[in-house]
Design a protein around this nucleic acid. Structure first.
Length: 601
RNA sequence: GGGGCCGUAGCUCAAUUGGCUAGAGUACCGGACUGUCGAUCCGGUGGUUGAGGGUUCGAAUCCCUUCGGCCUCGCCA
């Protein structure tokens, strides 16, 4: 028989669920939260109540407590309840595993504020629920303490950023989401205009041009945490909408922006994780990064650097290497130290993986101790044995090591050996834990030649300024021109990138022309920027941080989706809302849109 | 667009060489139990094996197509 239960003023919580301690014993308290677990012993009933601060054990005695005990017996996980009661010492039943384990609350009144239907998945399951299900019921997934901590870490990062830039005289200015398609770059998300039938807005890939206009407008220092949109295929570290910290400064050189960024990085690490990082941060040119690591965002937490051994191969009778070199290619290698654990099965697997990303094969040798120094075995040993000693000395290989080779164009060799290096680091477990390797990569090529389209493309974007001393090369050898860009890399992930911008109209026109953006197109797409550059543009530069990637790194998450409250799947749909979805014919008519036949219909 | 892995009860997973009524844990329902804290114990409900087609006496298992999820190359200034 259910007794009448008095309503509890849940808006007057005396404490949060993770707060009570031994010093609170005997206090009368009012708690509200979710049922984390219920243990019914027939007599006494224990219920753990949870909110974002933690968990407290409630005790329901069968004694005359106005029906509270009976209600407690019917509770399910994730019911929302409010209780009043008295804090008691747990005496001999203290639970040292819980922060509130010294006490429990003896409940005198309970009110079920909201019942929970059978859950689609258990919050505290020992098994990890599939991401598909978690995203479908994201609001349940987000209740998990792990997710709560990630989103709170994200907040600490955002707050540290806002405070730091505010203290340094930056102002936050909002820029349009409904804007114009930018040239090059990613595919745009488009929004049709109703009042301008046949015309479309593009959602911004970044506020790049607007922040430059703000500099021209004299705001001196701007910083904004802002959403950006790119309609490209997704990855573990990419979402169609993602968040940047976007900033721009006037009257600055590269050094000034980099120093400001380093200060913010220091602040973020301290406020978000309590970690002290040392500044100034190390720097590396793009050329050196490519040479040593095969990638422009090197993970410097471990060695296994790439070594160029092209010059040694002249003495070797190995057709594969010879032919590649004759065609202008290179031969590089990397040395896996003390790699006895690399079985044939593993190296065969790696060869397959390299083939999977477009490589031809993976020549290798094992280094052994011979009667007179070192010898090679397996793989391409018979070809390389003549230069064994010399090669080992050059690349620092010792008995027990395995040397992997790659040949082809510099770009291909870099790509495959970089892939191999990171895979080997995982397999051989050589990446130190709890290490934060921040580093600047600078002096990128301003433009790269695209063989397919037979034209130059910006390495970063068309507004990046060239190094002053390289400007003359724009006419003679554009591929040699370096730019005033800088990328910030953390443990091998690019987490920020920016540059000093072009602030002179003549230079900007020249770059557009180099990129094959003709006067017509330039005029059509951003006459407003070229025009603005005519009216007193200060030298300026800035940077954008990938906020999601920062949080992903700082929280140790493997996917950007784990640090976004409501992310999309790899096919860019939201399993929770079902977006994107069809719209009514009336909506289409209003926009003067008609749909072509859909694929598969 | 290409390559790879995966899909069995609400959830997490089993199921021998293609062979018995597709099982277990958990959740859910019912019962027992006064110190648990992943409570325990007893009983029960629950299945279009992602979908469609094929091979076979017989398919979760083999073949084809397709849908979905994840990783990745291209792409992402």
């Amino acid at each position: 028989m259910r007794s009448r239960i008095l309503a509890i003023p849940y808006n007057k919580r005396s404490h949060r669920c993770g707060e009570l301690r031994g010093c609170d014993i005997d206090k009368q308290v009012l708690l509200a939260g979710w049922v984390n677990a219920a243990r019914d012993h027939g007599g006494v009933v224990f219920v753990d109540i949870r909110d974002h601060t933690g968990v407290t054990q409630l005790r329901f005695n069968p004694a005359p407590t106005g029906g509270a005990h009976e209600t407690a017996q019917r509770l399910h996980n994730e019911d929302v309840i409010a209780v009043t009661g008295r804090v008691l010492s747990r005496g001999e039943w203290v639970n040292p595993k819980m922060p509130t384990g010294e006490i429990e609350v003896e409940v005198d009144q309970i009110e079920v504020l909201s019942e929970c239907a059978p859950l689609p998945f258990q919050l505290n399951d020992e098994f990890e629920t599939s991401e598909e299900t978690r995203l479908r019921y994201r609001y349940i997934d987000l209740r998990r303490p792990e997710m709560q901590e990630v989103l709170r870490l994200r907040h600490r990062v955002a707050r540290a950023i806002r405070e730091y830039f505010h203290e340094n005289d930056f102002i936050e200015v909002e820029t349009p989401f409904l804007t114009k398609s930018t040239p090059e770059g990613a595919r745009d998300y488009l929004v049709p205009s109703r009042v301008q039938p046949g015309s479309f807005f593009a959602l911004p890939q970044s506020p790049q041009i607007f922040k430059q206009l703000l500099m021209i407008a004299g705001y001196d220092r701007y910083a904004q945490i802002v959403r950006c949109f790119r309609d490209e295929d997704l990855r573990a570290d990419r979402q169609p909408e993602f968040t940047q910290l976007d900033l721009e400064m006037a009257f600055v050189q590269r050094e000034d922006v980099m120093a400001m960024v380093e200060g913010s990085a220091k602040r973020i690490f301290k406020d978000a994780l309590g970690v002290e990082i040392t500044t100034p941060l190390p720097r590396m040119t793009e050329e050196e990064a490519m040479e040593r690591f095969g990638i422009d965002r090197p993970d410097t937490r471990f060695g296994m650097e790439l070594k160029d051994v092209t010059e040694f191969m002249g003495e070797v009778d190995f057709k594969v290497f010879r032919e590649a070199i004759d065609q202008g290619g290179v031969v590089k290698c990397l040395v896996a130290k003390q790699a006895e654990s690399l079985t044939r099965k593993i190296t065969d697997g790696l060869t397959e993986e390299i083939r999977g990303i477009g490589g031809a094969g993976l020549p290798l040798v094992k280094v052994n101790k011979g009667d007179n120094g070192v010898t090679f075995s397996t793989g391409v040993a018979k070809f390389l044995q003549p230069i064994c000693a010399k090669l080992c000395e050059q690349v620092g290989a010792d008995p027990g090591d395995v040397i992997f080779f790659m040949t082809g164009t510099f770009a291909d060799v870099s790509k495959y050996l970089h892939y191999l290096r990171t895979r080997l680091a995982t397999i051989l477990d050589v990446i130190p834990k709890d290490r934060w390797d921040l580093l600047w990569v600078i002096d990128f090529p301003l433009v790269v030649w695209d063989e397919e389209e037979q034209r130059w493309f910006s390495t970063h974007h068309p507004f990046t300024a060239p190094l002053d001393e390289d400007i003359p090369l724009l006419d003679t050898d554009p591929g040699k021109v370096r730019d005033k860009a800088y990328d910030l890399v953390l443990n091998g992930i690019e987490i920020a990138g920016g540059s000093i911008r072009i602030h002179r109209q003549d230079v900007q026109r020249k770059i557009f022309s180099l990129l094959g953006i003709g006067p017509e197109e330039a005029k059509e797409k951003f006459e407003f920027l070229l025009e603005a550059l005519r009216f007193g543009a200060p030298p300026h530069g800035g940077i954008a941080y990938g906020l999601d990637r920062w949080v992903m790194m700082l929280s140790g998450s493997e996917s950007i989706r784990d640090v976004i409250a409501f992310p999309k799947t790899q096919r860019a749909v939201c399993p929770l809302t079902g977006a994107p979805g069809p719209v009514s014919q009336a909506q289409l008519d209003e926009l003067y849109l008609s749909l072509k036949a859909l694929p598969g219909s």
